Amino acid sequence: MNTCDWPLLGPLQWTSYVNKQVRVKAGKDEEHRGWLLTVDPVSASLVLVDFGLPGKASVQVVMGHAVEEVQVLQEADQETTERLQTSFLPPTPRRLDPEVLTTTRVRVRSWLEKNRIPVEEEGAELRVAGVLTITAPYGPDDCCSSNQIILDRIQRLIQNQPDALETEPEPTGSPKD
């Protein structure tokens, strides 16, 4: 294909290259290879993925205006297509034991109250000072509030919460007779 052709092809033609291993010539003596994940519809830039090492993927963006030629090297098999489609999805949340969630919710509430933070339970959520909500699994990233100052302080407080296994230190010294 000609230098100017790639950006002019448009999204319908670009999709015919998606999930295929391609060689892209761009600029002077510049060549890129990888699996075409997607094409940006505005800039015609190509997103190439290379699965070099097991469990790893490298991503490279080739700017659309620089593309001189795109050549299909190989069609993706079912496994490669699935890998391309799922490589950049967030991990699926694991199902947590309801007993663990209850224990964690009680620990977080107790910790906040110990630090003189007004907190109440609303179903499975914790409501802090009427302006912040903490949902399961009750970690710093599970806090939601439009008040950034309170959000930051509560997240920091939860992050600095002592582990559940820690107990109050035993007093040292000899027992009184």
Rank of each mutant, 00 (worst) to 15 (best):
V70H: 00
T80H: 02
T86I: 02
S145F: 09
I154Q: 04
V61D: 03
V128I: 15
S110A: 15
E120N: 11
L101C: 06
I134T: 01
V70P: 00
R94L: 14
L46V: 02
T135Y: 07
T102S: 09
G123C: 08
S45L: 03
R109G: 11
G130T: 07
D152P: 01
V61A: 07
L46P: 01
V61Y: 03
V42W: 04
G139H: 10
V70F: 01
A76L: 05
G52I: 13
Q148V: 10
P93G: 10
R116H: 13
G64N: 06
K28L: 13
L48F: 01
S87V: 14
R95L: 13
N115W: 08
T92F: 07
G123H: 12
P118E: 12
L132G: 05
E82W: 08
Y138D: 04
L53Q: 14
R105F: 02
Q148F: 10
L46M: 15
L126F: 10
Y138I: 01
P54Q: 15
M63V: 08
R23V: 11
K28E: 13
G139F: 05
R95T: 15
L73C: 08
V67F: 00
L112V: 05
A136T: 06
P54G: 05
D97P: 05
E122V: 12
D141R: 13
I134Q: 02
K114M: 08
Y138M: 00
V24M: 00
T103L: 11
L101E: 09
E75P: 00
G34A: 05
T133Y: 10
V100T: 10
L112K: 03
K114G: 08
D77F: 04
P90W: 07
V61F: 01
G123I: 07
V128K: 09
F51L: 05
L151P: 02
V119P: 12
V39P: 01
R109Q: 15
P137Q: 10
S110V: 01
D142P: 02
I154L: 11
C143I: 11
K25Q: 11
V22Y: 01
E30C: 12
R94W: 09
